[in-house]
């Protein structure tokens, strides 16, 4: 059975570090930066486990600032 495999691109300069995508991700791929901040001073979200991503787009749907792009393939 083909399995979904996904990838996300996060616009880190637009991200405000609200944490909603991290909570929404069913496979725990995302995390907020612990120390690094973007130009506006927010701890932006980044991918910590790209191999877990299934391209479900839950993170992108709940993102209030539209900073996440999602790609998906079936392999």
């Amino acid at each position: 059975m083909p399995k979904p495999k996904g990838a996300v691109i996060i616009d880190t300069e637009r991200c405000k570090g609200c944490d909603l995508c991290v909570v929404a991700c069913p496979t725990d791929c995302l995390e907020l930066q612990k120390k690094e901040v973007n130009n506006r001073g927010y701890r932006f979200a980044h991918v910590i486990a790209p191999e877990n991503c299934i391209g479900c787009a839950s993170c992108a749907l709940v993102c209030p600032d539209a900073c996440i792009e999602v790609f998906k393939v079936m392999i």
Binding site: K5, G6, G55, A57, L61, E69, V70, F71, K72, V73
Partner: peptide, 12 residues
Amino acid sequence: DIIKPENKVYSS
């Protein structure tokens, strides 16, 4: 290989 325009499922 995944990040290609034809595989895009969600964007702004």
